[in-house]
Amino acid sequence: MEPATRSVGEAKEQADGRLAGKVAVITGGASGMGRATVERFLDEGASVVIGDLNADAGHAFMAELNQAGCGERARFSRTDVAVEDDVAAMTELAVEAFGRLDVVFNNAGIGGAFGPITELDVDAWDETFAILVRSVMLGTKHAARHMIPQGSGGSIINTASIAGVGGGAGPQAYSAAKAAVISLAQTTAVELAPHRIRVNAICPGLIFTPLMHSGNEAQAEEVMRETQPWPGRGEGADIASAALFLASDDGQFVSGQQLVVDGAMLAAGPRIHGRMHNTRNLHRTAGMAYGTTGKAATVRRL
């Protein structure tokens, strides 16, 4: 088992490793689960393009990687994952910089639209689906455009959520969007299987990231203790380990699956929605949460 947290310094140049010679694109790669996966993939020998809307966070991360001595195997691309030209440019950068594309991790996400169903803003609903679902379609589309002619297969990994499996783990728009991500992974897995391109979804539970705790770490840990059977909190490194399995040859016969990584939370019946400090008063507010993108949330009191 890998340690729960990893430093950038551990991601040194590797001549071997489970991803040696492979090239990956990871969206939402400047923070949280995406950042942990970038570090793990670099540590395992991959070259990585980091896609993120937050340019400040992306450039700061690249500076750390350069200082750690592994910046030659990393590139940053400021990417709005809901914009096709941005996604196309991000995947092109991987091929231009490193010669091929083997893995795409469609991980970028936001909290999205929230509030009572009677008060949800339709534009916020549409934007949530653009960032959480259209992005996965675009990432899959442009990954396949490079992987198919290469003729050596590939792995596409999508971040879904236990919120997409049943009620009680997230607001309506977020949960519905993540259910769509799971379905899209299944349908594209069937379509791309003849090309030896695997498509899977990871379904995290509560993972301790800036998107999850929104700055209130103590309250987030309290909710984890109350709702998650497993002792100890979920970390970005836990998702990175799951992504590594799906990206590597260890997962070569795994496709069309949803891999739940949640400390048995789903098995126990999630009761998360409305318990976090940033969701506790959703019956009295409505708006749009943008997570770690650098965009401020909008909140309307009812």
Score class of each variant (00 low, 15 high):
1 M>D: 14
4 A>F: 09
14 Q>I: 03
15 A>P: 13
20 A>Q: 11
21 G>T: 03
24 A>K: 04
25 V>K: 02
27 T>I: 06
33 M>A: 09
36 A>V: 04
43 D>T: 11
44 E>N: 13
45 G>H: 07
45 G>K: 03
46 A>C: 11
48 V>R: 00
50 I>V: 14
50 I>Q: 00
54 N>H: 13
55 A>G: 10
58 G>D: 00
58 G>I: 00
70 C>T: 14
71 G>Y: 07
74 A>L: 06
76 F>V: 00
81 V>M: 07
82 A>S: 15
86 D>H: 14
89 A>Q: 09
89 A>W: 07
89 A>E: 11
92 E>H: 11
92 E>M: 01
93 L>S: 10
95 V>D: 10
96 E>K: 15
97 A>G: 10
99 G>F: 06
105 F>P: 04
107 N>A: 12
107 N>E: 02
110 I>D: 04
112 G>S: 05
112 G>A: 08
116 P>M: 03
117 I>Y: 13
120 L>Q: 08
126 D>Y: 11
130 A>K: 09
132 L>T: 02
134 R>G: 01
135 S>M: 05
139 G>V: 08
145 R>I: 09
145 R>P: 03
145 R>L: 12
145 R>Y: 08
147 M>H: 05
147 M>C: 12
150 Q>F: 07
152 S>F: 11
155 S>H: 06
160 A>H: 05
162 I>M: 07
165 V>N: 04
166 G>A: 12
166 G>C: 07
167 G>F: 10
169 A>P: 07
173 A>Q: 02
177 A>K: 05
181 V>S: 04
181 V>E: 02
184 L>D: 08
186 Q>N: 04
189 A>S: 15
191 E>K: 13
194 P>Y: 03
202 I>H: 07
207 I>R: 00
212 M>K: 05
213 H>A: 08
214 S>W: 04
216 N>S: 14
224 M>L: 10
225 R>N: 14
227 T>D: 07
230 W>Y: 14
241 S>K: 12
242 A>K: 04
251 G>H: 01
251 G>N: 13
253 F>H: 11
255 S>N: 01
257 Q>E: 12
259 L>E: 00
259 L>W: 09
261 V>P: 02
261 V>M: 09
263 G>K: 00
265 M>C: 13
268 A>M: 02
275 R>Y: 01
277 H>E: 15
277 H>M: 11
282 L>Q: 12
293 T>F: 03
296 A>L: 15
301 R>F: 10
